[in-house]
Amino acid sequence: MKAMIYDSPFNRSSFNRALLVAFVISGLLLFIPDPMLAKLNLAGVMAHYGAAVSLIYLGILSYFAVQALSMIWQAMSERWRWNRNQDLARNKALSFDHEERALLREFFLQRRSSLILPIHQEAVQRLTQTCVLQEIESNEPLQEGQARFVIAASARPFMTSNNLRLPVSELTDDDIRYFKAARPEYIKAQLKQQWREQLKAQRRQAA
C-alpha cells in the first residue's frame, strides 16, 4: 500500500520573512517617539492596540531567540560529535590489527572512494563502531548482508602511510605480492567476481 503524500503550503523561509517584517513594524511602533507617532497619525492606533503590538513584538522576539538557541545547540552538538568521532578514529588508527589495516588499504590500492563490504564481518563492524568506516546509501542492487562504505571524513587525517603500512614511494613487485596475499578473503572473492563479470562482458561484446 502506497503512502499518500500531501503538498504542504507551509514554507518556513516565507514564514520567517513574514515574522521578521512583523517584528520590524511592531518594533518601530513601540519605540519611535510619541511626536513622530502623532505626525504619522498612529497615536490613536497605539492607544487602542499598543498592548497587542507589544505582545506581537515579544512573541516574535521569543520565537527568534528560541530559533537562535536551537541553531547554537545544533552547532555545538555537531562539533562535539565530530570531536568524539575524531578521538575514536585517532585511537583506533594507533591500534589497527592486520585485517583492519589490509581492509583499509583496499581503498588506496583500488583507488576507490567507496567499497562494498559485508556488514556483519567483524573487522567492518569494529571500524564502523570506531567511526573509521561509514555506511552510505546506495541505489545499486547489493547482495543481502552487504553495504557500501567510505572512510569517514573525521578519520581521513589518520589514514597515513605509517598507520596503513603503505610504502611512501611507488609500490614494488614485492609490495604488490604482499598486499595481494594479505587481502581479506571477502575482498579476494569480491575482486574475483568483478573479474569474472568483466570477462563475461568482454566475451559478449566480442560475440
Rank of each mutant, 00 (worst) to 15 (best):
F108W: 05
L109K: 05
L109T: 07
Q110F: 11
R111H: 14
R111E: 13
R111L: 08
R112Y: 00
R112C: 07
R112V: 05
R112K: 12
S113N: 11
S113D: 11
S113Y: 08
S113I: 13
S114E: 10
S114F: 09
S114H: 06
S114W: 05
L115M: 12
L115T: 08
L115D: 06
L115Q: 08
I116P: 07
I116Q: 02
I116G: 03
I116V: 15
I116N: 02
I116T: 13
L117K: 00
L117P: 03
L117Y: 04
L117R: 01
L117I: 10
P118C: 08
P118R: 05
P118N: 05
I119H: 01
I119R: 08
I119M: 10
Q121G: 01
Q121H: 15
E122P: 15
E122R: 07
A123N: 11
A123M: 02
A123F: 06
A123H: 03
A123W: 02
V124I: 12
V124H: 04
V124N: 02
V124K: 00
Q125T: 14
Q125L: 08
Q125H: 08
Q125V: 14
Q125D: 04
Q125I: 14
Q125W: 05
R126W: 01
R126K: 10
L127D: 07
L127F: 09
L127E: 03
T128Q: 09
T128D: 01
T128R: 09
Q129H: 12
T130P: 02
T130W: 05
T130E: 12
T130R: 12
T130H: 09
C131V: 05
C131A: 15
V132E: 00
V132G: 02
V132T: 09
V132K: 10
L133A: 06
L133V: 08
L133G: 05
Q134C: 06
Q134H: 07
E135Q: 15
E135S: 15
E135H: 13
I136K: 06
I136D: 00
I136E: 00
I136G: 00
E137P: 05
E137M: 10
S138V: 09
S138F: 00
S138M: 04
S138W: 10
N139A: 14
N139G: 15
N139S: 15
E140W: 04
E140Y: 02
E140A: 15
E140I: 11
E140S: 13
E140H: 07
P141M: 10
L142H: 12
L142V: 07
L142I: 06
L142S: 10
L142C: 12
L142E: 04
Q143A: 15
Q143R: 15
E144R: 13
E144Q: 14
E144A: 11
